[in-house]
Protein backbone atom coordinates (compact mmCIF):
# COMPACT_ATOMS: atom_id res chain seq x y z
CA UNK A 1 0.00 0.00 0.00
CA UNK A 2 1.16 3.54 -0.60
CA UNK A 3 2.69 5.51 2.25
CA UNK A 4 -0.06 8.01 1.49
CA UNK A 5 -2.08 8.76 -1.59
CA UNK A 6 -3.35 12.15 -2.73
CA UNK A 7 -6.81 11.33 -1.46
CA UNK A 8 -9.09 8.39 -0.83
CA UNK A 9 -10.96 9.40 -3.98
CA UNK A 10 -8.12 8.50 -6.32
CA UNK A 11 -7.19 4.84 -6.85
CA UNK A 12 -3.92 4.02 -5.15
CA UNK A 13 -1.76 2.01 -7.55
CA UNK A 14 0.08 0.30 -4.70
CA UNK A 15 -3.20 -0.91 -3.18
CA UNK A 16 -4.38 -2.02 -6.63
CA UNK A 17 -1.10 -3.95 -7.14
CA UNK A 18 -1.29 -5.41 -3.63
CA UNK A 19 -4.70 -6.95 -4.38
CA UNK A 20 -3.50 -8.06 -7.82
CA UNK A 21 -0.47 -9.85 -6.40
CA UNK A 22 -1.89 -11.34 -3.21
CA UNK A 23 -5.62 -11.84 -3.74
CA UNK A 24 -7.13 -15.32 -3.83
CA UNK A 25 -10.47 -15.65 -5.60
CA UNK A 26 -12.08 -17.17 -8.67
CA UNK A 27 -11.53 -13.91 -10.54
CA UNK A 28 -7.85 -13.79 -9.53
CA UNK A 29 -7.32 -17.26 -10.96
CA UNK A 30 -9.14 -16.45 -14.21
CA UNK A 31 -7.00 -16.17 -17.33
CA UNK A 32 -5.67 -12.59 -17.85
CA UNK A 33 -6.47 -12.72 -21.59
CA UNK A 34 -10.07 -13.59 -20.76
CA UNK A 35 -10.34 -10.67 -18.34
CA UNK A 36 -8.77 -8.24 -20.84
CA UNK A 37 -11.13 -9.33 -23.62
CA UNK A 38 -14.09 -9.10 -21.23
CA UNK A 39 -13.08 -5.49 -20.44
CA UNK A 40 -13.32 -4.70 -24.16
CA UNK A 41 -16.76 -6.33 -24.20
CA UNK A 42 -17.91 -4.34 -21.15
CA UNK A 43 -16.73 -1.04 -22.72
CA UNK A 44 -18.51 -2.00 -25.95
CA UNK A 45 -21.72 -2.89 -24.09
CA UNK A 46 -21.63 0.39 -22.13
CA UNK A 47 -21.24 2.24 -25.43
CA UNK A 48 -23.89 0.34 -27.37
CA UNK A 49 -26.64 -0.03 -24.74
CA UNK A 50 -29.02 2.91 -24.44
CA UNK A 51 -31.74 1.47 -22.21
CA UNK A 52 -31.42 2.66 -18.61
CA UNK A 53 -32.69 -0.68 -17.20
CA UNK A 54 -30.09 -2.65 -19.15
CA UNK A 55 -27.37 -0.20 -18.14
CA UNK A 56 -28.41 -0.67 -14.50
CA UNK A 57 -28.25 -4.45 -15.00
CA UNK A 58 -24.75 -4.11 -16.51
CA UNK A 59 -23.61 -2.07 -13.50
CA UNK A 60 -25.03 -4.63 -11.05
CA UNK A 61 -23.29 -7.49 -12.89
CA UNK A 62 -19.98 -5.57 -12.71
CA UNK A 63 -20.46 -4.98 -8.98
CA UNK A 64 -21.14 -8.71 -8.57
CA UNK A 65 -17.88 -9.51 -10.42
CA UNK A 66 -16.03 -7.10 -8.11
CA UNK A 67 -17.55 -8.73 -5.03
CA UNK A 68 -16.79 -12.20 -6.43
CA UNK A 69 -13.15 -11.12 -6.54
CA UNK A 70 -13.36 -10.47 -2.76
CA UNK A 71 -12.34 -6.85 -3.20
CA UNK A 72 -13.31 -4.13 -0.67
CA UNK A 73 -16.54 -2.37 -1.57
CA UNK A 74 -15.87 0.67 0.66
CA UNK A 75 -12.66 1.47 -1.22
CA UNK A 76 -14.49 1.20 -4.55
CA UNK A 77 -17.21 3.61 -3.38
CA UNK A 78 -14.52 6.17 -2.47
CA UNK A 79 -12.89 5.72 -5.90
CA UNK A 80 -16.25 6.28 -7.62
CA UNK A 81 -15.92 9.97 -6.66
CA UNK A 82 -13.62 10.70 -9.60
CA UNK A 83 -15.84 9.40 -12.46
CA UNK A 84 -18.98 10.71 -10.74
CA UNK A 85 -17.42 14.17 -10.45
CA UNK A 86 -16.48 14.21 -14.14
CA UNK A 87 -19.88 13.03 -15.35
CA UNK A 88 -21.80 15.46 -13.10
CA UNK A 89 -19.54 18.43 -13.96
CA UNK A 90 -19.88 17.90 -17.69
CA UNK A 91 -23.54 16.99 -17.83
CA UNK A 92 -24.67 19.70 -15.40
CA UNK A 93 -25.36 22.09 -18.27
CA UNK A 94 -27.22 19.36 -20.18
CA UNK A 95 -29.54 18.78 -17.21
CA UNK A 96 -30.81 22.33 -17.66
CA UNK A 97 -30.68 22.59 -21.45
CA UNK A 98 -31.85 19.14 -22.58
CA UNK A 99 -35.34 19.31 -24.18
CA UNK A 100 -38.00 17.52 -22.10
CA UNK A 101 -40.63 17.90 -19.40
CA UNK A 102 -39.80 20.12 -16.45
CA UNK A 103 -38.98 18.23 -13.24
CA UNK A 104 -38.24 21.25 -11.10
CA UNK A 105 -37.67 24.90 -11.96
CA UNK A 106 -37.66 28.47 -10.76
CA UNK A 107 -37.85 31.97 -12.17
CA UNK A 108 -34.50 33.72 -11.95
CA UNK A 109 -34.30 37.39 -13.01
CA UNK A 110 -37.23 36.90 -15.38
CA UNK A 111 -35.80 33.73 -16.92
CA UNK A 112 -37.18 30.26 -16.29
CA UNK A 113 -34.41 27.90 -15.15
CA UNK A 114 -35.54 24.28 -15.03
CA UNK A 115 -34.26 20.74 -14.85
CA UNK A 116 -35.74 18.47 -17.52
CA UNK A 117 -36.56 14.78 -17.17
CA UNK A 118 -34.47 13.92 -20.23
CA UNK A 119 -31.54 15.84 -18.74
CA UNK A 120 -31.71 13.81 -15.53
CA UNK A 121 -32.03 10.55 -17.49
CA UNK A 122 -29.03 11.54 -19.65
CA UNK A 123 -26.92 12.13 -16.55
CA UNK A 124 -28.10 8.87 -14.95
CA UNK A 125 -27.24 6.85 -18.08
CA UNK A 126 -23.77 8.37 -18.34
CA UNK A 127 -23.20 7.68 -14.63
CA UNK A 128 -24.26 4.04 -14.96
CA UNK A 129 -22.04 3.53 -18.02
CA UNK A 130 -19.06 5.16 -16.33
CA UNK A 131 -19.44 3.25 -13.07
CA UNK A 132 -19.97 -0.10 -14.80
CA UNK A 133 -16.76 0.29 -16.80
CA UNK A 134 -14.72 1.71 -13.89
CA UNK A 135 -15.84 -1.16 -11.64
CA UNK A 136 -14.76 -3.82 -14.13
CA UNK A 137 -11.59 -1.94 -15.03
CA UNK A 138 -10.56 -1.86 -11.37
CA UNK A 139 -11.60 -5.51 -10.96
CA UNK A 140 -9.27 -6.41 -13.83
CA UNK A 141 -6.27 -4.53 -12.42
CA UNK A 142 -6.93 -5.64 -8.83
CA UNK A 143 -7.05 -9.31 -9.81
CA UNK A 144 -4.20 -9.50 -12.32
CA UNK A 145 -0.51 -9.79 -11.44
CA UNK A 146 1.97 -7.20 -12.76
CA UNK A 147 3.81 -9.91 -14.67
CA UNK A 148 0.62 -10.88 -16.50
CA UNK A 149 -0.19 -7.25 -17.38
CA UNK A 150 3.42 -6.88 -18.58
CA UNK A 151 3.02 -10.04 -20.67
CA UNK A 152 -0.16 -8.73 -22.34
CA UNK A 153 1.46 -5.33 -23.01
CA UNK A 154 4.57 -7.02 -24.39
CA UNK A 155 2.58 -9.15 -26.82
CA UNK A 156 0.04 -6.57 -27.98
CA UNK A 157 1.95 -3.27 -28.16
CA UNK A 158 4.77 -2.13 -30.46
CA UNK A 159 8.21 -2.48 -28.84
CA UNK A 160 8.84 1.20 -27.98
CA UNK A 161 5.33 1.63 -26.61
CA UNK A 162 5.49 -1.61 -24.57
CA UNK A 163 8.85 -0.61 -23.07
CA UNK A 164 7.55 2.85 -22.16
CA UNK A 165 4.35 1.34 -20.71
CA UNK A 166 6.21 -1.12 -18.52
CA UNK A 167 8.82 1.39 -17.35
CA UNK A 168 6.27 4.10 -16.59
CA UNK A 169 4.05 1.60 -14.73
CA UNK A 170 7.03 0.81 -12.51
CA UNK A 171 7.94 4.50 -12.11
CA UNK A 172 4.36 5.46 -11.14
CA UNK A 173 4.87 4.36 -7.56
CA UNK A 174 7.97 6.48 -7.01
CA UNK A 175 6.69 9.58 -8.80
CA UNK A 176 3.36 9.45 -6.95
CA UNK A 177 5.27 9.39 -3.66
CA UNK A 178 7.49 12.22 -4.93
CA UNK A 179 4.53 14.47 -5.76
CA UNK A 180 2.82 13.55 -2.49
CA UNK A 181 6.00 14.46 -0.55
CA UNK A 182 6.11 17.87 -2.26
CA UNK A 183 2.42 18.50 -1.51
CA UNK A 184 2.98 17.45 2.11
CA UNK A 185 5.93 19.85 2.37
CA UNK A 186 3.72 22.64 0.99
CA UNK A 187 0.92 21.89 3.48
CA UNK A 188 3.43 21.65 6.35
CA UNK A 189 4.43 25.25 5.65
CA UNK A 190 0.78 26.27 5.74
CA UNK A 191 0.69 26.59 1.97
CA UNK A 192 -2.30 25.84 -0.23
CA UNK A 193 -2.98 25.20 -3.88
CA UNK A 194 -4.96 28.44 -4.28
CA UNK A 195 -3.16 31.59 -3.16
CA UNK A 196 -3.38 34.14 -5.96
CA UNK A 197 -2.25 33.62 -9.51
CA UNK A 198 1.37 34.79 -9.15
CA UNK A 199 2.20 32.83 -6.01
CA UNK A 200 0.15 29.91 -7.28
CA UNK A 201 2.11 29.71 -10.53
CA UNK A 202 5.49 29.86 -8.80
CA UNK A 203 4.25 27.28 -6.30
CA UNK A 204 3.18 24.86 -9.01
CA UNK A 205 6.38 25.51 -10.95
CA UNK A 206 8.53 24.65 -7.95
CA UNK A 207 6.47 21.52 -7.19
CA UNK A 208 6.35 20.23 -10.75
CA UNK A 209 9.84 21.47 -11.67
CA UNK A 210 11.34 19.54 -8.76
CA UNK A 211 9.20 16.51 -9.60
CA UNK A 212 10.49 16.54 -13.19
CA UNK A 213 14.14 17.15 -12.27
CA UNK A 214 14.10 14.38 -9.67
CA UNK A 215 12.29 12.12 -12.14
CA UNK A 216 14.92 12.74 -14.83
CA UNK A 217 17.79 12.13 -12.50
CA UNK A 218 16.17 8.92 -11.28
CA UNK A 219 15.41 7.84 -14.86
CA UNK A 220 19.05 8.37 -15.84
CA UNK A 221 20.28 6.37 -12.85
CA UNK A 222 17.83 3.58 -13.65
CA UNK A 223 18.71 3.53 -17.36
CA UNK A 224 22.45 3.37 -16.54
CA UNK A 225 21.79 0.51 -14.11
CA UNK A 226 19.66 -1.29 -16.69
CA UNK A 227 22.20 -0.78 -19.49
CA UNK A 228 24.97 -2.10 -17.28
CA UNK A 229 22.87 -5.26 -16.89
CA UNK A 230 22.45 -5.64 -20.63
CA UNK A 231 19.23 -3.72 -21.28
CA UNK A 232 19.00 -2.74 -24.95
CA UNK A 233 15.48 -1.35 -25.11
CA UNK A 234 13.70 -4.72 -25.11
CA UNK A 235 11.80 -5.50 -21.92
CA UNK A 236 12.04 -9.20 -21.13
CA UNK A 237 8.96 -10.86 -19.68
CA UNK A 238 9.25 -14.06 -17.73
CA UNK A 239 5.59 -14.59 -16.84
CA UNK A 240 4.02 -17.40 -18.84
CA UNK A 241 0.65 -16.40 -20.24
CA UNK A 242 -1.48 -19.48 -20.79
CA UNK A 243 -4.25 -19.52 -23.36
CA UNK A 244 -7.80 -19.04 -22.07
CA UNK A 245 -9.57 -22.17 -20.92
CA UNK A 246 -12.65 -23.58 -22.69
CA UNK A 247 -14.81 -21.84 -20.08
CA UNK A 248 -12.95 -18.59 -20.78
CA UNK A 249 -13.67 -18.89 -24.52
CA UNK A 250 -17.34 -19.51 -23.72
CA UNK A 251 -17.49 -16.39 -21.52
CA UNK A 252 -15.86 -14.26 -24.22
CA UNK A 253 -18.23 -15.66 -26.86
CA UNK A 254 -21.27 -14.94 -24.66
CA UNK A 255 -20.03 -11.39 -23.93
CA UNK A 256 -19.49 -10.57 -27.60
CA UNK A 257 -22.77 -12.22 -28.59
CA UNK A 258 -24.43 -9.81 -26.11
CA UNK A 259 -22.57 -6.88 -27.73
CA UNK A 260 -23.57 -8.02 -31.24
CA UNK A 261 -27.20 -8.57 -30.18
CA UNK A 262 -27.36 -5.14 -28.49
CA UNK A 263 -25.88 -3.48 -31.58
CA UNK A 264 -28.37 -5.31 -33.84
CA UNK A 265 -31.31 -4.23 -31.66
CA UNK A 266 -30.07 -0.64 -31.54
CA UNK A 267 -29.39 -0.16 -35.23
CA UNK A 268 -31.73 -2.61 -37.00
CA UNK A 269 -34.61 -3.72 -34.79
CA UNK A 270 -35.38 -1.54 -31.77
CA UNK A 271 -38.70 -3.34 -31.26
CA UNK A 272 -36.82 -6.56 -30.46
CA UNK A 273 -35.19 -5.00 -27.37
CA UNK A 274 -38.54 -3.55 -26.19
CA UNK A 275 -40.18 -6.95 -26.69
CA UNK A 276 -37.50 -8.61 -24.55
Amino acid sequence: MSRRSYSKHIPDFRLVTHYGESGRSVVHSANPWTKAVLLVAVVSLATVLTDIVLLTALFIVMLAAYKLARLPLGVLLGWFTLPVMFVVTLTMLFVFTEPGDEVVGLDLLGTRVSISDNGVILMAKLLLRALAVVTFSLTLFMTTKYGQIAGIAHRTLPRALATMFLLSYRFLFVTSDEVTDLLDAMHARNGGLVKGVTRQSRLFASIFGHAFIHAFERAERISKAMESRGFSGEFPTVERLPRPSARGYVMMAVAFAAVAFSAYCRYFDQELMRWL
Binding site: F171, A215, M226, E227
Partner: peptide
Protein backbone atom coordinates in the same frame (compact mmCIF):
# COMPACT_ATOMS: atom_id res chain seq x y z
CA UNK B 1 17.35 3.35 -23.42
CA UNK B 2 18.10 6.69 -21.67
CA UNK B 3 15.57 8.52 -23.86
CA UNK B 4 13.00 5.76 -23.35
CA UNK B 5 13.56 5.89 -19.58
CA UNK B 6 13.20 9.69 -19.56
CA UNK B 7 10.02 9.51 -21.67
CA UNK B 8 8.64 6.86 -19.29
CA UNK B 9 9.46 9.09 -16.33
CA UNK B 10 7.70 11.99 -18.10
CA UNK B 11 4.67 9.72 -18.46
CA UNK B 12 4.59 8.77 -14.81
CA UNK B 13 5.16 12.35 -13.57
Amino acid sequence: PRKLAIAAMCTSV
